[in-house]
Simulated assay, not measured.
Amino acid sequence: MPYLNPIPTKFSPTLAETRKRVISLYRHWQKSVPTIVIEYRVNYPQAVLRTRIRSEFEKKRHLTDIGAINIALFRGRAELEETLNNWKQTSHLADIIEKKEPEDKQMKFLDSFLAGQN
């Protein structure tokens, strides 16, 4: 059973340092995919997990505030630690992998409603 040692929470003072930490976390997630597939006996190919991890990082790509980036890094590291230490159930992991994005139909309705068309 893999065990990921906890690390102290660190606040990066510059964008360059936060960028290095984000890349390091991303690589650690990607390198952990084979272990996750084996430990959780997931019925998804590794490529699906890698794509899902990539999409989660892409969601936060627009962040420019150092504080917000540091919070996202903390949460990402906590998720990785929980996953590798088997503190999650297989169903939790499956929910994360199968998470669907909001439907366009609902967003179109809200956009038109807020624009005063309906």
Rank of each mutant, 00 (worst) to 15 (best):
residue 39 E to S: 15
residue 39 E to M: 15
residue 39 E to F: 15
residue 39 E to R: 09
residue 40 Y to M: 05
residue 40 Y to E: 01
residue 41 R to S: 10
residue 42 V to E: 15
residue 43 N to K: 14
residue 43 N to D: 13
residue 43 N to S: 15
residue 44 Y to N: 01
residue 44 Y to W: 06
residue 44 Y to H: 11
residue 45 P to E: 00
residue 46 Q to D: 04
residue 46 Q to M: 13
residue 47 A to V: 12
residue 47 A to K: 13
residue 47 A to S: 14
residue 48 V to W: 04
residue 49 L to P: 02
residue 49 L to W: 03
residue 49 L to F: 14
residue 49 L to S: 05
residue 49 L to I: 10
residue 49 L to C: 02
residue 50 R to S: 14
residue 50 R to C: 13
residue 51 T to V: 12
residue 51 T to D: 08
residue 51 T to H: 15
residue 51 T to I: 07
residue 51 T to Y: 10
residue 52 R to Q: 08
residue 52 R to S: 10
residue 52 R to V: 14
residue 53 I to W: 06
residue 53 I to G: 02
residue 53 I to R: 06
residue 53 I to M: 05
residue 54 R to C: 02
residue 55 S to T: 13
residue 55 S to V: 12
residue 55 S to Q: 11
residue 55 S to I: 10
residue 55 S to M: 14
residue 55 S to R: 15
residue 56 E to A: 08
residue 56 E to L: 14
residue 57 F to E: 04
residue 57 F to N: 03
residue 57 F to Y: 02
residue 57 F to R: 00
residue 58 E to D: 12
residue 58 E to H: 07
residue 58 E to S: 07
residue 59 K to S: 12
residue 60 K to R: 13
residue 62 H to K: 13
residue 62 H to T: 09
residue 62 H to I: 11
residue 62 H to M: 08
residue 63 L to E: 01
residue 63 L to M: 04
residue 64 T to M: 05
residue 65 D to A: 03
residue 66 I to Y: 00
residue 66 I to C: 00
residue 66 I to N: 00
residue 67 G to E: 07
residue 67 G to V: 10
residue 67 G to A: 09
residue 68 A to E: 15
residue 68 A to S: 11
residue 69 I to D: 01
residue 69 I to A: 01
residue 69 I to F: 12
residue 70 N to D: 06
residue 71 I to C: 10
residue 71 I to E: 08
residue 71 I to M: 10
residue 71 I to L: 14
residue 71 I to K: 15
residue 71 I to D: 06
residue 72 A to K: 02
residue 72 A to H: 03
residue 72 A to G: 04
residue 72 A to W: 09
residue 72 A to P: 03
residue 73 L to Y: 02
residue 73 L to E: 05
residue 75 R to H: 13
residue 75 R to M: 07
residue 76 G to Q: 13
